[in-house]
Amino acid sequence: MLTVLLLMASGILLGLLLPNSPRIKSIIDRLTLYTMYLLLGIMGFSIGTNKTLLEKLPALGFQAVVITFGAVTGSVVMGWIAYWLFYKAKH
């Protein structure tokens, strides 16, 4: 966790030194997007190679899906309320 935060902090500092140019911003955004696709591919790969997890998936997966659905729905509703209360109302 510390490595991750330090890397990001150094990125922010370096970013602040960059000139304020839309071209540079769009290059960084595109690089971020491609790296993100790569990381997701690797994540999928991890799960794909984990045969024990894949075998157990149907049996335990249903319960997991139900819990995730509840957790995410509750959080999204809270986020929606927060957006209107704290952010949208002021802009």
Partner: peptide, 26 residues
């Protein structure tokens, strides 16, 4: 599997750096 976990770790590091860069540049 093991190489893959390490690759994922470094990809995440690169990603964090890029996100930091984009925050600073904006």
């Amino acid at each position: 599997v093991l190489e893959n976990i390490i690759a994922g770790q470094y990809t995440l590091y690169l990603l964090m750096f890029l996100v930091g860069l984009s925050i600073g540049a904006d």
